[in-house]
Design a protein around this nucleic acid. Structure first.
Lengths: 104, 104
DNA sequence: TCCAAATGGACAAATAATGTCCACAAAACT
DNA sequence: AGTTTTGTGGACATTATTTGTCCATTTGGA
């Protein structure tokens, strides 16, 4: 089993493992092959609806892809902003803080 | 370690400490007072241009506010998606991985 | 070579966000 | 009380961002 580090790479691995073309998968999830190609190379983000369709098509857990999707988004944001990694620690503290605000 | 709340709360604290009204600050940073009120209560996100203006107005470091801004965005995303906190660990690993990819 | 597959870019469409206006509510002041 | 000032809420306009498509081009294999 190959290690995939982004959602796009994971999707490409699954497709190639299944021996399918972009066109075949794209048709089944109702998008243009060009868009799927971009998603596999992380040039576009899939919508949640598309993630659901892909999970159904490959018969895997939707939440697995959603988790990859979310961590991708956060990672790319850190990279885009050239931010320090301790931003993530701060964010973690804020989540706890905001949760207590919401509940208490 | 210092206490992190949210960017909005920070802005409100600074404004009140300075004894200024929403209108006074809003006028100086060229936005509607209503918008500033929403930003202080985290109902709206400031643009980077606005963050710059605010930093100039209060004579503080722009990057301090930008860091708060970024960690806020990540925290709110985690909360919105009701995601597990270990997503942040995964994101951290992805950042490292993508950095090595980028550099070769 | 020929054909299918994959990629890139420009543009259209859709979505999501910011920002404003105005009305209202709550204080504060005279 | 009346008046003015401050902060809030919602509807809407505006702007920005993102997704998605189309088509041309390139790549790779039989």
């Amino acid at each position: 089993m190959r290690i995939h580090t982004t959602l796009g790479e994971h999707l490409r691995t699954m497709r190639e493992t299944a021996g399918l073309t972009l066109r075949e998968v794209a048709t089944n999830v109702s998008i243009d092959p060009s868009l799927l190609a971009k998603i596999e190379r992380n040039q576009r983000q899939p919508t949640k609806k598309l993630i659901k369709n892909i999970a159904l098509f490959f018969k895997i857990e939707e939440r697995e892809l959603l988790s990859e999707f979310l961590s991708d988004q956060i990672a790319y944001k850190i990279l885009d902003e050239e931010a320090d990694l301790n931003i993530l620690k701060v964010a973690e503290e804020k989540v706890s803080y905001l949760k207590t605000l919401r509940n208490g």
